Computed example of a mutant assay.
Amino acid sequence: MKFLKLSIIAFFSLFAISCKENKSTNPNKTETAVSKNIKTEDVVYNIRGINYKSFAAFTTDSDQPKPVVMVIPEWWGLNDYAKSRAKQLAELGYFAMAVDFYGEGKVVDNPEEAGQLAQPFYQIPINAKMIFDAAKARVVTYPNADHSKIAVIGYCFGGAQALNMARQESDLKGAVSFHGNLMTGVKPKNNKVKILVCNGANDTFVSPEEIAAFKKEMDSAKINYTFIDYPNSLHSFTNPASTEVGKKFNMKIAYNKEADEKSWNDMKKFLADIFK
């Protein structure tokens, strides 16, 4: 627990600057052309008196139920970047849902506010499960979503929460973390969920100690996991705005196109395998 607290403090003190959104090189716009048969819609539901507005994307060319991939956004909230990833997953043939974690579709553009919104999910991990389960409950209402095949992916904050869900959820087929923190303070309750961790080999925000603790936990729980270090990759290597932000704030972060593409391809192979 002491290690977890120190990790949280380090995460928020350093990551606050590193993940700051850069509007001049807006990473929220997808660079992949969305097929005309992709349908998107807001999915509104209520949790404890607050409306949550998640985002679904799926193809309309077939009524055949599709495997489900839940997307947990960065700590900015459910912005266009997270939605673009959902659209990309829909193009691959999945039913994708990007999850609103904050309620009312809230999106923030400063690290102080983002930190305040994200921190409770690190401090009380089961809170994330409640939000995730509510979104997942809406997925099962879609006849074209195969709710017997569900995986979760996430970026940064979302990557950590994807691993949080893998530790708590019994019905997930798999979880993928892109440059997220690894330790969530929750002991694995299910060793049937396969895990893929996409980590920057030069990421200074995920320490060797955290990596070692994660691997030890996974090995002890006999969880099937794959940990990939992408060479010459710093933190936020999938975010196109990272390089400019890193220069502006003198932070060790940068976009790495090769690592971004390789990690996405590794995710595609992982999803194809777990959904066989």
Rank of each mutant, 00 (worst) to 15 (best):
L182I: 01
K5W: 15
F249A: 14
A259I: 06
V186D: 00
F15C: 11
N265L: 14
I274H: 02
A56N: 07
F227L: 04
G49P: 08
I228D: 02
I50T: 12
Q116L: 12
Y94M: 02
I72Q: 02
F95D: 03
Y81T: 11
G154W: 05
E258V: 12
M97K: 06
N28L: 08
T204V: 15
F237P: 07
G185D: 01
A82Q: 05
I9M: 14
T204K: 15
L234P: 09
E91G: 13
N202H: 14
V152W: 02
A86N: 02
A57M: 08
P67N: 03
V108S: 02
K192H: 15
A90R: 09
F3W: 11
T32L: 12
S236N: 14
F227G: 01
I253C: 05
D260A: 11
K257I: 06
L172H: 08
K66V: 03
L234K: 12
F11W: 10
T226C: 04
K149Q: 09
Y94C: 08
N202W: 11
N199V: 07
E112C: 06
L271T: 03
A221I: 09
E41R: 14
S24T: 15
D100R: 03
F121Q: 02
K262P: 03
A137N: 11
M1R: 13
M70P: 01
A16R: 06
D61S: 14
N110W: 08
A90L: 08
R85N: 03
A96T: 04
N46L: 14
M1C: 13
S220W: 01
K222W: 03
A213E: 11
I50F: 11
A128R: 02
Q161S: 09
F11L: 15
T25Y: 10
A16V: 08
Q119G: 03
Y155P: 06
Q119R: 11
Y45H: 13
F55K: 04
K276G: 09
N181V: 05
V206D: 00
V206W: 05
L92D: 10
D109Y: 08
K222R: 13
D80W: 00
Q168N: 10
S220K: 12
P231S: 07
G158F: 03
A82L: 01
V68W: 01
T184W: 05
L14E: 09
S233V: 05
K189F: 13
N250T: 13
D266W: 08
